[in-house]
């Protein structure tokens, strides 16, 4: 195990030249944790041509590895760099987003540094000098409080903490570090970015979304949702399993690996409300959820809920809306 001090490190995630919103949430929480540990808060910023991003990060310091070789980074190259940085004196807490990049990196680093890992954390505290994380499990149906006896790596679900506290008021001190690892030894190489296929509708621009989940059961049932969306002047979108089945195209997917939407109305039909889904829609103005399971976590983010088999409700709702329009 590498030696650890009392500091808190936050891995800064960025895509297309912008810092990801959850990084500020981690910095805000990281401040509290660092204060409780009497340590420093360090933002770890890695990439190619990214040093200007450092100015927005609220931290005691920014460890910045800006190298052209890191311009198209893979989890493997980031892991090699953070590992080398941590080898001298690693942090007590290394915080990453529970995101595509953060999940990969957290596992690689926890293994390489022989640190315990706690994933999908939604709350984080220090008790008796230990990190105590509350982690989401079972699609949001269960929480687990766990603690690490010593330095640890934690992935945090985006949206768990306010972002404001993590946005820098003044520029933080930046420590530029030359590339500390041999990227030639990294056996993953970024080839290209693939942008979402255009052509279909842009669900982020729709003010009314009728969202269907696995509860829709069959592709043949999608037209029922489309009819409803049509009357409301909205668009049909979906959770991941519906897209995985090929019933709706990928640009219609809402959530962690899909789109982030904030419509005036989000009508969720047969969606359980897994954290990966709610991440993409919980800031909608009005959320109405229809689910046959009264314990579905979607009711924790919805404004209004209906426990019913959607097929008992959809005809009545379609009819009532049609009558309202006539």
């Amino acid at each position: 195990m590498t030696p650890a001090g009392r500091d808190v490190w936050v891995h800064v995630e960025h895509l297309n030249g912008k810092v990801a919103g959850h990084t500020y949430e981690l910095l805000g929480k990281g401040r509290e944790i660092a204060d409780a540990l009497s340590g420093r808060l360090t933002a770890v910023l890695i990439g190619g041509g990214i040093q200007p991003l450092a100015e927005t990060l609220a931290a005691d310091g920014v460890l910045c590895v800006d190298d052209a070789g890191l311009a198209d980074a893979t989890p493997g190259s980031h892991a090699a760099v953070v590992k080398a940085l941590a080898e001298k004196e690693g942090p007590h807490a290394l915080l990453l987003g529970a995101t595509s990049m953060g999940m990969d990196l957290a596992c690689l680093l926890a293994a390489a540094l022989e640190r315990p890992l706690m994933v999908n954390c939604v709350n984080l505290q220090v008790g008796d000098g230990r990190l105590v994380a509350t982690c989401q499990m079972c699609g949001g149906k269960l929480l687990c409080e766990a603690e690490a006896d010593g330095p640890a790596v934690v992935t945090v679900v985006p949206g768990s903490f306010p972002a404001e506290a993590g946005v820098a008021k003044g520029a933080p001190p930046i420590e530029a570090v030359p590339l500390p690892a041999d990227l030639g030894a990294v056996r993953t190489r970024a080839v290209r970015m693939i942008e979402p296929e255009p052509g279909d509708v842009d669900i982020t621009k729709s003010s009314v979304l009728v969202a269907v989940g696995r509860g829709i059961q069959r592709q043949d049932n999608i037209p029922l949702a489309e009819e409803l969306a049509g009357i409301l002047g909205g668009t049909v979108c979906a959770s991941r399993p519906v897209v995985d089945q090929g019933w709706l195209p990928l640009p219609r997917q809402v959530g962690k690996s899909g789109m982030i939407v904030k419509p005036k109305l989000y009508l969720a039909l047969g969606i359980s409300g897994a954290p990966e889904h709610t991440e993409g829609m919980k800031d909608s103005d009005l959320i109405i959820a229809v689910n046959s399971d009264a314990k579905a976590p979607i009711f924790d983010v919805a404004d209004y809920g209906v426990v019913i088999d959607m097929y008992d409700l959809i005809p009545a709702l379609t009819q009532a809306l049609q009558a309202r329009r006539a």
Binding site: C107, A110, A111, A112, L117, M137, C138, R187
Partner: peptide
């Protein structure tokens, strides 16, 4: 990822422990 993951994800931990290249998601 599995719904009961807490102390890591099997895929990424295996990549790290085996010292093999790993890409997830």
């Amino acid at each position: 990822q599995a719904i009961d993951d807490l102390d890591g994800h099997v895929a990424g931990m295996l990549g790290g422990l085996a010292g093999m290249p790993y890409v997830g998601v």
